[in-house]
């Protein structure tokens, strides 16, 4: 369970108000997409959630607790660029987080521990489609592959919240489409909360379960920096009950197929009892 709450958050730089009166509460397992014009403070909002910047007023809570004042492992991130380390191989990049957590001085595992981590990392890399590129350096990968790597690198830490800052902004349309599928699936599989910033509307409504638009509610032409942006619209892009019933349906279909597949192998009298058990299970 992960919930995120913004309590009357403001962000000001000297006289310039960037964000004002941001109030938001986010349920567990939501895919929140933040949209809005460029330079309005979408990324600032994300940075505050990451603790890269501090709110001037108000506070941000995760699971009811105020977030740490610096970036920590409970919030993973993928930026538009530069989220991977150029001096480590693909496999090395994915293994960095757990090694840092487990080896404070050397930052490196040896022997059996290393082998176990390597297997885990390889499984994750295969999941994001980078299995055969494990020993390349990031500079040898395409933009889309680098973003897949950045995702795998963040996911191995099992963050409560995954923050995506225009992660597909620099990708071509084909790659973007496959990345959308991947992110959607990973979100389902890991049952985490994702917060993504984008300015691509179709992308926002394709992926998001909730989409918020950030913009200035009021503007003083004499002093354009007097008022900051706030959440101006809040869409429930995919109704929660529909989502959950779909999930339930998918789970039921899966169990039924599994039972059907198992039945002929075990039972002497195949089809009829198998169907019966499947129905009873439902």
């Amino acid at each position: 369970m992960t919930t995120i709450t913004f309590e009357n958050v403001w962000k000001e730089y000297d006289e310039r108000v960037v964000l004002e009166q941001v109030n938001l509460s986010l349920d567990d397992h939501e895919f929140l997409v933040i949209i809005g014009p460029s330079g309005v403070g979408k990324t600032t909002l994300l940075r505050m959630l990451l603790s890269q910047e501090q709110p001037t007023r108000g506070r941000i809570l995760i699971d009811g607790e105020p977030i740490a004042s610096e970036p920590t492992a409970d919030r993973g991130v993928v930026f538009q660029r530069y989220s991977v380390f150029p001096h480590r191989t693909v496999l090395g990049n994915v293994m960095m987080g757990p090694q840092w957590a487990g080896a404070p001085i050397l930052g490196r595992f040896f022997g059996a521990r290393r082998k176990a981590l390597e297997e885990k990392a390889m499984a994750l890399l295969t999941r994001v489609g980078l299995g055969e590129h494990a020993h390349k350096y990031p500079a040898q990968l395409s933009g889309g592959m680098q973003q897949r790597l950045a995702l795998a690198q963040a996911l191995i830490m099992k963050p409560k919240v995954l923050l995506l800052d225009e992660p597909f902004g620099a990708l071509d349309p084909g790659t973007r489409k496959s990345m959308h599928e991947l992110v959607g699936e990973l979100w389902e599989e890991n049952r985490m909360t994702i917060v993504m910033v984008t300015h691509d509307l179709p992308e926002a409504f394709l992926l998001g379960t909730r989409v918020i638009a950030v913009d200035k509610r009021r503007n003083d032409p004499q002093a354009p920096e007097r008022f900051g942006a706030s959440i101006v619209s809040d869409f429930e892009a995919k109704c929660r009950s529909v989502r959950e019933s779909r999930l339930f349906e998918a789970e039921r279909a899966r169990v039924r197929l599994a039972l059907l597949a198992a039945a002929p192998a075990t039972g002497d009298d195949p089809t009829v009892p198998a169907f019966e058990t499947a129905l009873v299970k439902d």
Partner: peptide, 15 residues
């Protein structure tokens, strides 16, 4: 971005 990313992976200053 790299430094922030490292922090979200739990790295200390020394690491």
């Amino acid at each position: 971005e790299q430094i922030i990313k490292a922090q979200t992976l739990g790295a200390s200053t020394w690491q």
